[in-house]
Amino acid sequence: MQAHFASTAELTRIPEVVVVIDVMRAFTVAAWAFAQGAERIVLAETLEQARTLKGRHPDWVALKDGPPAPGFDTVNSPGKLRSLELSGRTLVQKTSNGTAGAQAARHASLLMCASFTVAAATARLLRDRNATDVTFVITGEDGQADEDLACAQYIAELTRDPNADPAPYLHRAAASAAAADLAGGLRLGYQGIHAEDVALCLEANRFSFAMTATLDGPLMTLRSSPIPTR
């Protein structure tokens, strides 16, 4: 498989197969939402769209980056989300990096969203689809986020070697600016951060599903794709 790594801004031409990476924290949160029973996640284009969808569908669960805000049920934190009962629920998610990256690649033939938690399942789906050319979108820090790049490189390596060791990649993510920012925010008592967020973002292959995004009319919808082991 030929792997390419690009920032969201560099997606001037939409490749056939795209994997959008946001380790800290959008697509770790999404993975936990599916693990908690969520049926689907609508990836909103703007905060206003997220609020509007929540207003139209009061039973949907809306979440965003940063501190709690009117019109949203929770925040973009895996530590906070994993305590919620989400069976059969629809979520609306808007974040600064992850959902924006997915929207930029919305017309890819195969669009996946990933973090370390679903890395092996993502690689397995790429192999099952016989993907020979894959673009990984590094959403953080204008394409420079090392936690996202490390995750993308780990997934690419898993497509070649399903037994690839995650440890070197997780070490890079743990030493990233994003991890330091979350730890610093926690020390300062910022709302919207949970004490276990960084640790949860650094769990490799916790879940046995990949996450694929498709367009449902005007809305981009993320769903889990169980990957059987064999």
Rank of each mutant, 00 (worst) to 15 (best):
A50D: 09
P70M: 11
T46W: 01
G71V: 07
D128M: 12
R124Y: 00
D65A: 14
S109T: 15
T95N: 07
A69H: 13
R129Y: 08
E48W: 00
E48S: 15
L126H: 06
L53S: 05
N130G: 11
T46S: 15
S96D: 12
A120L: 12
R56E: 15
S115K: 06
L125I: 10
F72S: 00
V137S: 02
F116W: 00
T46E: 04
S87E: 13
F136M: 10
A121K: 04
A131E: 03
A104S: 08
R56D: 15
K64S: 14
D128Y: 08
T117I: 04
K80N: 08
V92H: 07
S77C: 13
R51M: 12
A62Q: 03
R124H: 11
A123F: 10
G79D: 10
L84I: 11
D73G: 10
L81A: 03
M112G: 03
G101W: 00
K64Y: 13
S87I: 14
F136G: 07
T139I: 11
T90M: 00
N97T: 08
K54T: 10
A69P: 01
T135C: 13
N97S: 15
F136V: 11
Q93D: 07
K54W: 01
V134W: 09
W60P: 12
H107M: 06
T99G: 06
P67Y: 14
S87R: 15
G98T: 12
L63W: 01
F116P: 01
V61L: 09
S87W: 02
H107P: 02
T122D: 06
T139S: 08
T52R: 13
L110T: 08
F116C: 08
D65F: 03
L110F: 13
